[in-house]
Amino acid sequence: MRDVAVVSFAPSEPGLTGVEETETQLLFPVINEALAKIGITRKDIGFTCSASCDYLAGAPFAFVQTLEATGAWPPISESHVEMDGAWALYEAWVRLQHGDVDVALAFSSGICSRADIREVLSIQLDPYYLAPLWLDPLSFGRLQAEAVGQEPPTQAPAYTDAAAAVVLAAGDRARELVDRPAWIAGIDHRTDAHYPGVRDLSKSESARIAGQQAGVDKAPVDVAYLSAQYPHEGLILMDALGLTHGYGLATNPLMVSGLIQVGTAADAVIKGDANRSVGHASAGPCLQQNLVAVFEA
């Protein structure tokens, strides 16, 4: 595989809520900052991958609006995932493997303060059998806590508003752009079955496979940032990834949480705070889908 690194990361200010700006306006400063940190402009980007969710805004085509933050004129090579921004980073990493593009931008945005997200997330479920039950994320969290013998949580971290951007670069281009590129030593993502009833909720098989494929256990980990909303999710993930410590989510800006955890892990390497770090993103009920990235100096 080609050596690819995260060379820059910029999130919006943590804990934002009730944001009045549009998602595009939220993205402008974080994309600007991610580029300015390494002294490049939008014209230096060879591939862009964006991430957003129509159900946060309650209107279709969130990504059509956010494209306006990329300077897409003349036209750019760009794709979009309706997933957490960590998967946009994954797609950008895949794209950079080809050798014809050296620098890529991945970003995501989400404004959670315009709807009741617990309610909104319940239409993420199987429309025939689960959605009519209006199961919300906290109920799922309590269910899973029981499965691992932990006190069921009474509250989830607040859903907040955020945007984040990362710049990835390959090989020598990465070395030119930053002193300590956060080399992606491994990255993988997996899903479990959707139905909680067919899973062993005390474990995360998908996180285990993703962690193993990403090579988490190949060397000691200095720091890990996990998309754990509750203490029991942290325990399940650390068990799956073979970690002894990991930082969870203080707040949960949907669509951006995972990219922030993964970007923060990369940033720890870039800044020299860690030589080997792990970032994790999750989606779906009871940690259904998991992405794990390992960064090395």
Partner: peptide, 10 residues
């Protein structure tokens, strides 16, 4: 349905 692939994974 929000992100129907979550449900369609099975």
């Amino acid at each position: 349905i929000m992100m129907p692939e979550i449900y369609l994974a099975d």
